[in-house]
């Protein structure tokens, strides 16, 4: 990790618990660089995470951090944002945490278009609990709870969040650090709910059961499978199978943001409520 990001790191809490070769550190570093570049302030930035290897990131970040409970990070973050609308609130979550147990909170946050940024570390597996299947695992994948091969199709989280109403949706991979950093930066700056899926390798629990536990090879694989949105546009579904479409996939800066809409409405209500009183005073 570059030195500058130490500014936002609890270096005394290192070494971290992640396995050698785990992609979680790469995404965390990308987030920290984005935070530095944007000039986020410690006193007005809160990082909320759930439970999982990825969610451990909040333990090492020297900003306001909340390591909440499994699946509920977005719900906790919603409360924080509503109480402190001027805070920058970022959710770091995993595919199990954010899309399984917390999936309902995720889609409802998208629907509200509340100004949070959610970075979801997608390793297609439950790392922390020892390799159980996740809702983003592909058909045929192996996990301790899919010992005969997984039969359920995965979520495409970017299409899901877009359909649910998120006004900024992007995907990056741990194999493309600079791009990921840019996407996170754009997401944080975006007014409204920003969802960034970060595809990360988990050599220990995913790799070992699915082809290779070699982290550099897993990163290479992410790079070769990646394809930009523009290039993907011309391809058929079959041609896109197995590809990771990266970049900003959806962006709508005009969509009404929840808190703004709410405050505007509240102001109108207050005015209306005080109007008769004002009349009487006259």
């Amino acid at each position: 990790m570059s030195l500058e990001i130490e500014e936002f790191l609890h270096t005394e809490r290192l070494p971290h618990i992640w396995c050698p070769g785990c992609g979680n550190g790469i995404v965390t570093a990308a987030f920290l660089r984005a935070a530095l570049d944007l000039g986020l302030k410690r006193e007005s930035t809160v990082v909320v995470s759930g439970i999982g290897c990825s969610s451990r990131a909040s333990n090492y970040i020297d900003l306001g951090t909340v390591h909440s409970i499994h699946g509920r990070a977005i719900a906790v973050a919603t409360g924080i944002k509503m109480a402190r609308p001027n805070f920058t609130v970022i959710v770091l979550t995993g595919d199990g945490d954010g899309a399984a147990i917390g999936g309902n909170h995720l889609i409802h946050a998208c629907r509200r278009n509340i100004d949070l940024t959610c970075v979801l570390f997608n390793n297609q597996i439950y790392g922390m609990t020892g390799g159980q299947l996740s809702p983003t695992m592909e058909v045929g994948g192996r996990a301790t709870t899919a010992p005969h091969g997984h039969v359920e199709p995965p979520f495409d989280l970017c299409r899901l969040t877009e359909a649910a109403g998120a006004s900024f949706v992007a995907r990056g991979t741990a194999g493309h650090i600079r791009q990921l950093e840019k996407l996170i930066k754009k997401g944080i700056a975006h007014p409204g709910f920003a969802f960034i899926e970060a595809v990360v390798p988990c050599p220990t629990e995913y790799g070992r059961r699915n082809g290779t536990a070699n982290a550099p090879r897993m990163l290479d694989d992410e790079r070769t499978r990646s394809i930009s949105k523009a290039k993907a546009a011309g391809l058929s579904r079959q041609e896109l199978a197995g590809k990771i479409v990266t970049g900003i996939l959806h962006e709508d800066t005009t969509a009404p943001e929840f808190l703004q809409a709410y405050t505007a409405d509240a102001r109108a209500q207050a005015e209306e409520a005080s109007a008769p009183a004002a009349k009487e005073q006259k």
Partner: peptide, 12 residues
């Protein structure tokens, strides 16, 4: 079920 240590082996 849903994974959680220390019960996951039952589910597995």
């Amino acid at each position: 079920g849903y994974p959680i240590t220390p019960s996951s082996e039952i589910m597995e």
